[in-house]
Design a protein around this nucleic acid. Structure first.
Length: 440
RNA sequence: CGGGGUAUAGCGCAGUCUGGUAGCGCAUCUGCUUUGGGAGCAGAGGGUCGUGGGUUCAAAUCCUACUGCCCCGACCA
């Protein structure tokens, strides 16, 4: 992508409304634009990150056996009256009327709708287990949105819903998502910690929040340091093995880890002092089991092998990609800007042409672009006639993992400079070696 | 929803107290000189001063109502 033809509205000054670093950087890097309180337009650079995160989430959901569909943003109030949540949800739900004065709403979540879809088609235990998910924009009319896309009113959410014949089946479905989440966050470059969360009226031990540590996190969290070193399940994990998954989940839930809501001072105090971690965290995922809470009132029943019809046991599993964009920046930045992990960087390589119009420099850049694109790397090519200082500052701000700097000085020796954004290391390399290094 | 702020050019701000033809920095455009870490000079464009009503010869400025946005708290993926 040539920067001269791209849409990347960089801000040199920090907008005064942005309080936390991720919000500041997202605005400065031209990733988002606020359109209303807690509502953002995603500009090209931000959208690329959002899509990369979503792609990883999809891969891991699919790997764990979930099946993607897409439900609408606008829902009918009737479904919510069936579950009883239309009155219970309160002002956080954005309620609207259509031209026929019918009560509609902008969905804050989709339990009712997915339950309706399920009950419309599924009749037999033979069609279970089933896990359906989608990535869709949600709206929760927060009293006070803040921190940019970290806590917005409109937000993208991956929500999955599992259906099983009994509680044991639901537990395995839960474990599938538990493992999928560990893998998802690890692939995003994050160390996530599953923490026991409140389960509401259902009770039990089947609700976890996935937290990443960040000094600007909204929640106060406590954990045993050993949880940070646990092995993330491999890609070839057998998601059909009840025992394998239960072993993984048991290992991950053994060390103490809790948010302040669930904090047990005595249990925490029993951890050796050097392993006690008290920090702030950002909730990036939440999974829970809720049994027949929706299937019962909404009549989502299947026939069991015993010939008895019963409501299905359900769970739901959420990840917020739009929040993750902010969370990732909180985790990966320095004083000059964003430092994207390789997996989610909007472009792999930021190629800087220091002297646009100089034949040799232009030619070297074209050669690099072709070589990199042939290896399926996305290149952002700064072919503008801005001065070098401005280009460097911009490259550091938007934070691609590699910067390749081509100018007459180094090209006189047949070299380009390559800079690792994360470590700051620079090397003078031939074009071939530079390509080899970023491809590695 | 309670409390506190704020609204003037794309961004950051001054001007409001004490009414009198709307300004600064950055950004943008033109020209020249520059060109390896946010250049210099010269020139130019851009604002119904959040909206409505009022006071006044005259309102960014005073009065009034409304709205947007931000911060603190309770609430949330």
């Amino acid at each position: 992508m040539r920067l001269s033809r791209y849409f990347l509205p960089i801000l040199r000054d920090t907008p005064k409304d942005a309080e936390i670093v991720s919000h500041r950087l997202m605005l400065r890097a031209g990733m988002v634009r606020q359109q209303s309180a807690g509502i953002y337009a995603w500009l090209p650079l931000g959208l690329r990150v959002l899509n990369k995160i979503s792609a990883i989430i999809r891969e891991e959901q699919n790997r764990a056996g979930a099946v993607e569909l897409l439900m609408p943003t606008i829902q009918s109030a009737d479904l919510w009256r069936e579950s009883g949540r239309y009155d219970a949800y309160g002002k956080e739900m954005l309620r609207i009327k259509d031209r026929h004065e019918r009560d509609m709403l902008f969905g804050p979540t989709n339990e009712e709708m997915i339950t309706d879809i399920f009950r419309s088609y599924i009749r037999s235990y033979k069609d279970l287990p089933l896990n359906l998910y989608h990535l869709q924009w949600k709206f929760r009319d927060e009293i006070r949105p803040r921190f940019g896309s970290m806590r917005s009113r409109e937000f993208l959410m991956k929500d999955a819903y599992s259906f099983d014949l009994d509680e044991a089946g639901a537990r395995h479905a839960y474990n599938r998502m538990f493992v999928a989440y560990l893998r998802t966050f690890a692939r995003l470059g994050l160390t996530s910690i599953p923490m026991r969360a409140e389960t509401g009226p259902i009770g039990g031990d089947l609700s976890h929040e996935f937290i990443i540590l960040a000094s600007t996190g909204e929640s106060e969290v406590f954990c045993d340091k050993s949880v940070l070193d646990l092995h993330v399940p491999d890609a070839d994990t057998n998601f059909d093995s009840v025992e394998d998954l239960q072993t993984i989940v048991s290992n991950w839930t053994k060390p103490y880890a809790a948010t302040s809501d669930m904090h047990d001072t005595a249990a925490y105090g029993a951890i050796p002092t050097e392993r006690q971690v008290s920090a702030r965290g950002i909730e990036v995922g939440h999974i829970f089991y809720f049994g027949t809470k929706y299937s019962e009132p909404m009549g989502a029943k299947v026939m069991g092998p015993d010939g008895i019809e019963r409501p299905v046991y359900m769970g739901s599993y959420g990840i917020g990609p739009s929040r993750l964009v902010a969370a990732l920046i909180e985790a990966f930045h320095d004083e000059n800007g964003i430092v994207w992990p390789k997996e989610i960087a909007p472009f792999h390589v930021h190629l800087i042409n220091l002297k646009v119009g100089d034949g040799a420099t232009d030619a070297a850049c074209e050669t690099l672009i072709h070589a990199l694109e042939a290896r399926h790397l996305d290149v952002l090519y700064d072919d503008t006639d801005e001065r070098p200082g401005g280009k460097f500052a911009k490259a550091d701000l938007i934070g691609m993992p590699w910067q390749i700097i081509a100018g007459p000085k180094s090209l006189a020796d047949g070299k380009v400079e390559i800079k690792n954004r994360g470590t700051g290391e620079r090397h003078l390399l031939s074009i071939e070696d530079a390509v080899r290094l970023v491809t590695a």
